[in-house]
Design a protein around this nucleic acid. Structure first.
Lengths: 203, 203
DNA sequence: GTTATGATGTCTGTGACTGACGTCAGTTAC
DNA sequence: GTAACTGACGTCAGTCACAGACATCATAAC
């Protein structure tokens, strides 16, 4: 028999979400979360670098889905198309069954400024990672950062929409629509100086 | 003679930046900052809601410049043009003389994850405020959020570029270029379903 | 002159986080 | 087969960010 129950991080995360949802984020101490699953505060902080992080545990699979989508894009695809691929890829991670869970988690996050801050930082980090991937494919700056940031923005908007009670569409559909809206929006303004993008494949 | 030197917040901010730059952010305590200008830790936290905030004191004028730019845009301007106005407006707040100061401040921020987090959150907050202003002008969702977020992104990229040692152009010029790049980028992809934007003036 | 005000100091407490060190089941090396 | 090793945990003690409550006192308002 093992000395400890396995999956400490997962148990802590589940307990944390429950406690945050029922008693509030600030009202719940890290020690309480740990105790509720038979661990100590010290162990909590061995698994999570800080208290907020417990709500973002597992986001790496989500980031990886983005990168997989980038890899799956055809070699000659323009930056925005690569981002569209990435968005399609990540949308598969959020089937309809997951909406309820996502919704309660998001409710907790939106209730607390510190958590909102961490969330926007995570989204920014995703954009950075995406930009790195685009640059690795030969997209130049600032196109890489612009495209990546746009992708993160589109995802953020689409996700918020997907969570809403009155929404029936799949995340993939919403994402595609929001991206299209962004492109249409850009089309209404007139570029003033620059020639069309010269990025894509260097060397 | 006044009982206390005036401008406590400004003095605290200046002292904080100095100490952060010379000894590092984490190595500097709030009490040290306060003491260095003859105040107490408690007073520090009366002026700033938390330790990081001291580096962002005064950002309201910056946000206001954005909003002024929105107001200055012609009534019939499409969302992206409104954003362009806002960007031009805010660029005037950063003349060449301010580059050195901005650079050291940014160096401090980039050295610390907690500060970077706060910064990305401030940028997100700016985007939210901008989106509100666009919506107040009749821009519908998600166009308002998309345009606002794009504006914030463009500013972020342009500002980072403006700060670089090897950069000679004004922030206004860089901003215009980055925005153009974004529009060109969008033009390379093909919108698939949506009709052109139907936002702008409701009711 | 009295009173109100506002920025400050003082005191005290809580909770997030950290470093150092001890513990012990299971694994590996010999 | 035992000894050394490892990894996940507990314990203890400490620092610091931050907040509530209350006192202080120069200045403004009356």
């Amino acid at each position: 028999m093992a000395r400890w129950e396995p999956g400490a991080a997962e148990r802590l995360q589940k307990a944390a979400l429950d406690l945050f949802a029922s008693h509030g984020y600030e009202e719940t101490t890290a020690a309480q979360i740990a105790q509720s699953v038979g661990l100590t505060e010290r162990t909590f902080f061995r698994h999570f670098s800080d208290k907020r992080e417990v709500l973002f545990y597992g986001q790496d699979v989500f980031v990886r889905a983005f990168l997989d989508g980038v890899d799956a894009a055809p070699q000659d695809a323009p930056p925005i198309e690569i981002v569209a691929c990435a968005l399609r890829s990540v949308a598969t991670l959020f089937p309809a069954e997951r909406r309820t869970h996502s919704r309660t988690r998001q409710a907790v996050i939106e209730q607390n400024p510190a958590l909102r801050e961490r969330e926007s930082h995570k989204l920014a980090g995703l954009a950075t990672t995406l930009a790195d991937a685009l640059r690795a494919r030969g997209v130049a700056e600032p196109a890489a950062t612009l495209a990546a940031q746009s992708g993160a923005t589109v995802f953020g908007i689409a996700f918020a929409q997907w969570i809403r009670e009155d929404e029936r569409r799949s995340l993939a559909d919403i994402t595609a629509d929001v991206l299209d809206e962004l492109l249409s929006l850009a089309a209404t303004a007139t570029p003033t100086r620059r020639a069309p993008v010269r990025s894509r494949r260097r060397g």
